[in-house]
């Protein structure tokens, strides 16, 4: 099947634009945070003032100031949606950031779909495309999280790794649109690789949330440490909850992805499991996230240790993506980089 050059060009263009727009969104979110910090200081001064407790509504109109208040005023219920607007400017920046992120997602999605149409196959057949899909999932997951939790001011830290990944993908790892080789022509490619991309993309979110958790936790033990960060981060209970719920969502998907991979390997390589480096690291990833879930229900392992395990889990996901694909030759290294 010939590749449609025009569409593939359009896809590349959308990819570049999406990356640039995310970058801009990062700047806006950082601006929200910077202005919000000023708001936070005034909030600290006004800490004694009684605060109204809003009824929790399904809307997304709550202000991103929740975390700020929760982090500095220990008396408040963690994350209660205080409606005090700490700074109109910050709020405006935050909203613009979200709007840009949504625009970025649309372009990002267009890039992926156009690739698929251009090559007449599932658009995740090489590393460049896999990273594109993974990042899309990460950003979409984050938008979903934003609908449930007031953590908009954390967006910069989620988008930042996404931008880095997209940048690496678009430069070092870029491959032109081509059909895939015989071993990859299977509907299991669609199933296995898409669940792997979705699960890995979602895993980015708990990874970032857990880093935030550790910072908050360190700040709690010693307020002087990471003060600049802890003031703007949401309370650690919220971060922990975000990490847990996203992990719990991604873990069965990941499990399914590994099983689908094994089914595919049985048809393509003659055995369902052969300790190929990629299989091995997926196994390790799975065991680490299983350990995370165990840690959550083991006395003395909740909290910091669980957060560390979660971060380790995502580190291994990234290791699997880069190191195993680029450095170690295995069955999975199909000419993935031009």
């Amino acid at each position: 099947m010939p590749v449609n050059e025009t569409l593939s060009q359009l896809s590349d263009w959308s990819y570049g634009s999406a990356t640039a727009i995310y970058m801009l969104a990062v700047v806006l979110f950082l601006a929200q945070q910077a202005f919000g910090k000023r708001g936070a200081e005034s909030a600290a001064r006004a800490a004694e003032r009684p605060r109204t407790v809003a009824s929790a509504g399904p809307s997304d109109t709550g202000v991103g100031g929740t975390g700020v208040a929760g982090g500095t005023a220990p008396g408040s219920a963690p994350g209660s949606t205080a409606t005090r607007r700490y700074s109109g400017t910050a709020e405006r920046f935050g909203r613009m950031g979200v709007a840009l992120t949504v625009l970025g997602v649309l372009l990002h999605l267009a890039a992926l779909v156009l690739r698929g149409v251009a090559t007449s196959r599932a658009p995740w057949g090489n590393m460049y495309e896999f990273i594109m899909a993974l990042c899309l999932v990460a950003v979409v997951t984050w938008l979903v999280v934003l609908r449930k939790y007031t953590v908009r001011h954390l967006s910069a830290y989620v988008l930042l790794p996404v931008v880095v990944l997209l940048f690496l993908g678009g430069t070092l790892l870029y491959s032109t649109a081509t059909p895939v080789q015989p071993a990859l022509q299977s509907y299991w490619l669609v199933i296995h690789v898409s669940t792997a991309a979705v699960a890995s993309g979602i895993f980015l979110i708990p990874g970032v949330a857990s880093i935030g958790y550790l910072l908050q936790s360190a700040g709690e033990r010693n307020p002087a440490r990471f003060a600049a960060m802890t003031r703007v981060l949401p309370p650690k209970e919220t971060l922990d909850r975000i990490a847990y719920r996203t992990t719990v969502f991604a873990f069965p998907l990941f499990t399914f992805g590994v099983i689908a991979g094994a089914i595919w390997a049985e048809a393509a390589w003659g055995r369902f499991w052969g300790w190929d480096p990629k299989e091995t690291v997926s196994f390790i990833t799975w065991v680490i996230y299983a350990a995370y879930l165990h840690a959550r229900s083991t006395a003395g392992w909740r909290g910091d240790r669980a957060a560390v395990i979660n971060i380790l889990g995502f580190a291994v996901v990234v290791f699997n993506l880069f190191f195993i694909n680029l450095v170690i030759a295995g069955l999975h290294s199909y000419a993935q980089v031009d």
Partner: peptide, 20 residues
């Protein structure tokens, strides 16, 4: 549970050399 957790960890660590 704690030992199960530690064993899970050890399993992950022990599997690692096989990947590299």
């Amino acid at each position: 549970m704690r030992v199960a957790l530690i064993l899970l960890f050890l399993l992950a660590v022990a599997a690692f050399p096989g990947a590299v």
